[in-house]
Each structure stands twice: as C-alpha cells, then as structure tokens.
Design a protein around this nucleic acid. Structure first.
Lengths: 229, 229
DNA sequence: CCGCTTCATTTTGGATCCAACTAAAGCATA
DNA sequence: TATGCTTTAGTTGGATCCAAAATGAAGCGG
C-alpha cells in the first residue's frame, strides 16, 4: 500500500527470485533491513507477506528461511496453475460466455494472430506477447464468477516460475520460441472455441495442457516440424 | 511464531469467520488494536497475513476492508479445493502409492468404518470424524510429491467455509449427518481404491466430487434412501 | 450555485526503544 | 572427558513516537 512497503516486498521478492539468497538461508530482520536501507518495521511486515506467498517459511521458533524449491515443486506449481485456470475455463464454459467477454477474447486472439503473422519473432515481440497472453488469461480467470480462483492463482504465481508469463525463457533461440508461441496461439484459439460451444470439460483440459507449454514443449520444438498455420 | 502474534492473527481470523465484523467494513488499525488490547504493531503484522489469506483486502489507498463473500465465492472455494485435492490424488495415483502411505490410508479408512459401524452418530463422533477426515486428506495431499499443492490448499482453506472439515454443519440433524458421513466414507474408500490401482483420472474425479459433499448433498439426504453399507 | 483550493483531522508507515525469549558458548562437576 | 547447568550475546515481538499521506470539511473565488 505505501510506496516503501510495496517496494520492500517487491524488492525482496525480486532478490529471492533472482537467487540472491541461498536456498534455505536464514534471513534475519536486521540484516535484511540494513541491506535494503530501511528499518526493521517494513521488513517485518514484508516477511509476513512473503511467508504467505510461500517464498519464506518459518525456521523453527526464530526467524524465516528462504523457501527451497525442487524441480518437483516447479512442475507442481505449473500443474496447480493449470488446474485452477482449467477450473475457471470450465466454469466459464458452463455458465456461458457473455458477448462482451467473447469480444474481448476474440480481440486478444486476433492480437496473437497479428503478432505471429509475419512468420518470425523479434525481441520486442516477446514483451507484446507477454501482454496479450496476460490479458487473455486474466480475461478468462476474471470472468469465472468469483475472485476466489483468481486469488488462488495470484498466490500461486508468486512462485517465480509458476506465472503464466514465464513462458519465454530463451530470448536467444527466437525461432524455437516462435514455434512455441504458435502452439500457444493454437491452444488459445481452441480454448476460446470450446468456451463458445459450452464445452466445459474440453475447455478445462485444453487449459490444463496449455499450462505445461513452458515446461514440456521445449524438447518437441527443437526437432519438431514447423506448424502450418 | 510468537504467542501474541499468532493469537492476534488467529483471533482476527475467528472474529471474521464468526461475522463479528460486517462484510466490507473498514478495519482501522487503532480500533482493532484497542478491541484486542494490544498495540498497533501486531495488528499491522496480522493485517498483512490476513490480506494474503484473502480475508481482508486493501480499501483504496488507506486501510483494509473485510472481504465480502457471495454464495458464488463459497461454491468456488469448495471447487478450488476439489481441483487441488484432485490434482494431488491424480499425481499420487500416477507416481504409485508407497506401502507406508497405503497402510496409512487403510488405517484411516478403517477408523471411518469403525466410527460408522454402530449405525448412528452421536455428538463426540463429530469431532472424531473431523480428526480422521483431516488425517485422510492430509495424507493424500502431503504425499503428492511437493508441498506446493498443500500450500495452495492451506491458503484456500483460510476461507472459513472452504476447509475440508467444514462438512459437519448441522449437529441437530444427526441422522442426516450420519448418512452424509456414510457417503463420505464410501468416497474415501473409492479414492483409495483408485489410488491403489493407479487410476489417476478416476482418483481425481472422485476427489473433486468428494469436495462437494458439504454443499450439494444436503438436499439428497433429506429425502434419499438409507445406504446399505 | 458550483468548483477549486487549502487546511485540519485522522490514519497509516517508519524508526527506535525496551522486554522477552532463544540458542549457543562457557564453566563446573561427576 | 562428557554431561549438565548457567550465563551471555543475539534476535525477535510489542509499544511508542514522529513524520508523511490521505480524507473530509471549510472557505474562497468564479
């Protein structure tokens, strides 16, 4: 809420995400406060927030430790997002798309088509895709009839590797990323198709699969064929 | 971590759950601090925790408001738990049950059978069922290979109506509750059966359905037949 | 009469102080 | 030498103080 408060939480989140602290390292309030140049109070507040976000957890009776993540945790966090976004998609399909939402989704679909139409990817496209991808996912989750799902996803997304916009990993291999985004675009369009037809189960499954694109699609794309789109 | 800190969070959680504050009511730090007889500091810490738990949310640029819940939110929170527990069950089925876990689950299944064997329910049984139900669910979620799912469920369970042990609502109508627990027991046993056979999809769906028992089964049980168990 | 600006009150954020508790080191004794 | 107790340093929680920001009201001007 306040500038500094947010900034302390944000800066710590960033530092943890960047691996500035060792996994499992004990964080003392005074040490962190000095490192960030603030007093203990905002750090204490931030620790509570970060604890709930899952980035820190209590170390016995005193202090906090940096949460350590295994590969299994990464996969699990992605699957959790898939399960939750899938739930949102199912609910949306079952309750029926409003025309406003249908138009909204169609707009982001078209944005994606436009982005990919030129047949390759360059640096600024990554940011553009991130934006439209975020809008697309937020439109679906935000229209599921309750903010509870969105909140759960937001909390899960605090794990740095779980967020939906962590698709782009390698900005060096833009050709592979282009093919990945082609697949993502196809999945987006299929999800919208399912939503339009009220196919709840299909929308859910497509969304769950879509969540895995950042993890499981890389090996396919190195050797796989180009998609005819 | 500290007594008072936990107690402030816990007391506020309880107060909010009991509806001591009006939905959407603005909570001032000083007011709450005086009401609880502590200084502002622990209240400020507690507010951050409760915000992350979803019980409070920021009111514009100043202060927090009590989160207001609609019926749709309640249903959604239960479905979220179902989706997450279902995910845990699926993963568990796919990775295979350890013999230790199989024994553990079998134990809680047997506890459930013993509890229901006498053919009716009395007051202390409610607490007993709550215990074994909690153990059963925790065993599954805690063995899914990562604490990420469990954390997400724990955060969701902070919504007072979403937790798995909020099945028992009406301790006046013990006969209906007995039939509800019979169904819950059957579902537990079916889940374990699916887990044993590695039937991931079935385990997931059973778990998701099981989550709805507190919401959607009441109307059935008023008029429905007794189960032959 | 309406709108903008300014001021005062209220509320929150940050810093500091003190007390309580924890963990570890050191000492003594068996 | 090992075990157990005591002491001590370090860390965290709670309270209070001060400053900054925001909200609401009052006053001024168009």
């Amino acid at each position: 809420m306040s500038n500094s408060d947010k900034s302390v939480v944000g800066r710590l989140r960033k530092l943890i995400g960047e691996g500035a602290f060792q996994q499992g390292e004990r964080l003392g309030e005074v040490a962190v406060a000095e490192q960030l140049g603030v007093s203990r109070t905002p750090v204490r507040l931030a620790f509570r927030t970060l604890e709930q976000e899952g980035l820190l957890h209590r170390a016995g009776k005193r202090g906090f430790r940096v949460r350590e993540f295994t590969e299994a945790d990464v996969l699990c966090a992605v699957e959790v997002r898939g399960a939750l976004e899938g739930l949102a998609a199912r609910r949306l399909a079952e309750q029926g798309l409003s025309s406003a939402l249908a138009a909204d989704l169609a707009f982001w679909i078209q944005e994606g088509r436009d982005l990919l139409a030129k047949g390759y990817l360059d640096e600024p496209d990554i940011e553009t895709w991130g934006e439209l991808n975020r809008h697309f996912h937020e439109s679906i989750v935000g229209s599921a009839g309750s903010s509870v799902i969105g909140d759960a996803i937001a909390r899960n997304n605090h794990l740095p590797f779980a967020a939906a916009d962590s698709i782009i990993i390698d900005s060096e291999a833009l050709e592979r990323e282009y093919r990945k985004l082609q697949l993502a675009q196809v999945q987006h369009e299929l999800v919208v198709q399912a939503l339009r037809h009220g196919e709840g189960a299909r929308a859910e499954m497509l969304m769950r699969e879509h969540a895995l694109i950042g993890l499981r699609y890389a090996e396919l794309l190195d050797v796989g064929p180009h998609l005819p789109v």
